[in-house]
Design a protein around this nucleic acid. Structure first.
Lengths: 134, 134
DNA sequence: CGTAGGGCTTCCAGTTACGGGAAGGTCAAG
DNA sequence: CTTGACCTTCCCGTAACTGGAAGCCCTACG
């Protein structure tokens, strides 16, 4: 299978697939013409990568997960560790963004938005750091 | 004031301050020795930048906000536009991350985590895409 | 007065995970 | 045999810095 077919089937752009090969996530053999000749197993790895990336796993996490999958034995513990670590980072990010969201939405609500020269948003960013929580 | 003092007072690392100058966000004059000589106004811009960045505004957003602030007249409308745009992007990000969080936490819950060779996380990532929502 | 230290300067490279685009080989169809 | 779609590699650009090297400057101490 050529890269175009694999791209169509996995939903991953050819550029991304080449990149994954470049960083060693898969090693499709080459045909006589120099084209990558993807096997079924390469496709499976790419599907795996696409799903893991969609869940926000980093490339390095994906590398570890692929190794654990290939390992076969004692996979669960490692996989769960990696996933929990990622889950915690996601939770932290959500918390950070929620904090920003709260402040931002209160600022936007407080701003009249017309042609008035005084803007509570600029005031808050520029001078005293006080800001209401609603 | 030298860059070290400014860094201490604004909480921004010297590297970051130099970077902000490099991309044109401020232009502190130089002393005879080549050192940056920060004025009060430079400090104020940096404080502004620090707060805006902490709220997640992009550098380009910050540039616009600083311009609007310097402009003086008709600031509110533009500032509100920029802030609302940013707020929407933050909301989108939270939504994306919440989706990941839901799937991830259900997967982690489903994984026994011991030395068992079968792992529902690997199974979900590797084969059929079905996954319970709780 | 010499030197040791800390602070300042610039420049270069690396980070994450690709995307855009150029230059050029290959393949199937008409 | 040419055309057009596909493939290849290579290099640059992204956001917002951070780390580190090489080298100048300034203050203080003995």
């Amino acid at each position: 299978m050529n890269i175009g077919d694999v791209a169509a089937r996995t939903g991953l752009p050819p550029k991304t697939i080449r990149y994954y090969e470049e960083i060693g996530l898969l090693k499709p053999p080459r045909g006589a013409n120099g084209y990558r000749a993807f096997r079924e197993g390469d496709m499976q790895r790419l599907v795996f990568l696409g799903r893991a990336r969609a869940l926000g796993f980093s490339i390095e996490d994906c590398r570890v997960l692929l190794d654990l999958r290939a390992d076969g034995t004692r996979a669960s513990a490692g996989v769960k560790d990696v996933s929990q670590g990622h889950l915690r980072r996601v939770e932290q990010k959500i918390a950070d963004l929620s904090g920003m969201h709260e402040t931002l939405s209160s600022l936007v609500r407080a701003c009249a938005g017309g042609t008035r020269p005084d803007c509570p948003i600029l005031d808050t960013l520029g001078t005293g750091a006080a800001q209401g929580r609603a």
